[in-house]
Simulated scan of single mutants.
Amino acid sequence: MYNILIVDDHPIVRAGMKSILNAEKGMLTLDEAQNARETMLKVSSNNYDLILLDLTLPDNQGLNLLKDIKTIKKQTPILILSVHPEEQYGIRCLKAGASGFISKESAPFELIKAIRKIQAGGRYISPTLAEIMATQIFDKDGPRHLRLSDREFDIFIGIAQGLKVTELAEKFKLSPKTIYTYREHVFTKMGFNSNVELARYANSNDLIV
């Protein structure tokens, strides 16, 4: 018996994952959550063998929820399922403690394969993410966006998507002044002189969904 918590804000997605898992012998999905608050309440009062976590929820952004879960249940494996490309968040999730990262566009068999790998005590890294990691090993400098902190990266992606400072401030619950500070850090670390340069870099590196 394998107890899994499915975290996603879309009922159809949760139902689909439950259907896939319930069809597998030896798998039992017991619980689900639709937002960060509900997730933390359930994680605090229950023990799960695995958490399937959507990276983007209405009341939480980026890697925050992953990190929050790990502070109270460090040993609980977390598999990230996301619409974001692996190039964008895959390595960051692994560094933050995730046991694997796969795209929501993946076939059902890949989800099962990932869960089986994690269930056996390993980590699941897709071929795409493995290639990215291998490139970083042989490229000592690595892509410039890896120089950014997680919050700086969130702001970087928001700017690349065309969000204004006020929109970013509302999205991340920060003051406009703080957003400007993060923006300055991004430009300094990555050597940009304009939002156009930033957006061009993001698109050329496939960082925009």
Rank of each mutant, 00 (worst) to 15 (best):
M1I: 11
Y2E: 07
L5N: 08
L5Y: 07
I6L: 10
I6V: 15
D8E: 10
D9N: 15
H10S: 10
R14Y: 11
R14M: 05
S19L: 14
I20G: 03
E24W: 03
E24H: 09
M27L: 15
A33W: 03
N35W: 03
A36D: 00
A36F: 09
L41F: 06
V43A: 12
N46H: 15
Y48T: 11
L53H: 05
P58E: 04
G62D: 12
D68I: 00
Q75C: 01
P77H: 01
L79C: 08
L81S: 02
S82Y: 04
S82N: 07
S82P: 01
H84L: 14
H84A: 07
H84I: 02
E86V: 06
I91H: 02
L94S: 04
K95W: 00
K95R: 14
A96F: 06
A98Y: 04
S99E: 14
F101L: 02
I102Y: 06
S106I: 04
P108Y: 08
F109E: 13
I112G: 08
A114G: 05
I115F: 07
I115M: 13
I118S: 04
G122V: 02
L129W: 12
A130R: 12
E131N: 10
I132G: 02
T135I: 12
T135Q: 13
D139Y: 02
D139P: 00
G142C: 06
R144P: 00
L146P: 02
L148S: 05
R151N: 10
E152M: 11
A160M: 08
Q161G: 13
L163K: 15
L163T: 00
A169P: 10
F172R: 08
L174G: 07
P176I: 10
Y180H: 06
R183S: 08
T188A: 12
M190E: 08
M190S: 05
F192K: 04
N195M: 04
N195S: 11
E197P: 02
Y201S: 07
N203E: 14
N205G: 00
I208E: 05
